[in-house]
Design a protein around this nucleic acid. Structure first.
Lengths: 124, 124
DNA sequence: CTAAGAGCTGGAGTGCACTCCAGGTCAAGC
DNA sequence: GCTTGACCTGGAGTGCACTCCAGCTCTTAG
């Protein structure tokens, strides 16, 4: 796959993919004879995981650290486990807090519904 | 309350509180004779809500919009409701996706545990 | 009376995570 | 053989959301 196809399938932009390679989130891609990057399908699984790490709020610095550890092989498994554990626990807390926020919003929206209009009461 | 106490109780920094006032997230605070801001306890409830909107990913632009609508009174209730509804739905999706990510992390951590060390099997 | 500490303003600076651009190369179809 | 479109590089620019700073005033404790 060329970079355009990876971008399309992964949801990351071409610029972002090159940027990720530059900072070490992605391994240096193989090149075809013309110098263009060529990717294995596996890259999509890695990008999906990187996207999850990003979405859960891991800063790019730690994503790079994780990627570096991963590239170093099995000797870094404990370090990786402990890094992920930290963010996992934070994530569990975040999910709990966001769930609370969801309730707050639902309550607020419901109050708008009853305040704003004479409304149709679902209990009636 | 002076601004320092609000900062301490709300978790927002003094600079952030002044910044929020400048951009319209907070109403222009009343001043004491010396020109210093003083706040009603109600501000803490509003700040808590603003914090939730921030944490769920609402950009500051829309938080300002919401604050403006709120300041305009009851005539904007429908607009506010619809704004919150949009973010509420997005939030529900985000929570689902983060929950999935939590599972992915747990699986990964578990695989590290079994790969990395001979481990103590909880089933045994 | 004075010194410390909290607050004030306008504006500059920061860190993050991309995103865009100019000016080029390369491959494939007509 | 030429045009079109995808790709290349190094580096500059962007938007967001604060955060910091200089130089000032005001209040309060000793």
């Amino acid at each position: 796959m060329m970079i355009g196809e990876v971008a399309e399938k992964s949801g990351f932009s071409i610029d972002t993919l090159r940027y990720y390679e530059k900072i070490g989130l992605l391994p240096n891609a193989d090149r075809d004879p013309g110098g263009r990057r060529f990717y294995d399908r596996d890259i999509l699984r890695w990008l999906d995981f990187l996207g999850r790490l990003r979405d859960l709020g891991m800063p790019i610095r730690d994503r790079v650290l994780y990627a570096r550890l991963r590239a170093e092989g099995d000797s870094t498994i404990e370090a990786r486990r402990s890094l992920l554990q930290t963010y996992r626990d934070e994530l569990a807390t975040r999910i709990a807090s966001l769930t609370e926020t969801l309730d707050v919003l639902d309550a607020k929206i419901a109050s708008y519904d009853t305040t704003g209009a004479p409304l149709k009461d679902p209990k009636k």
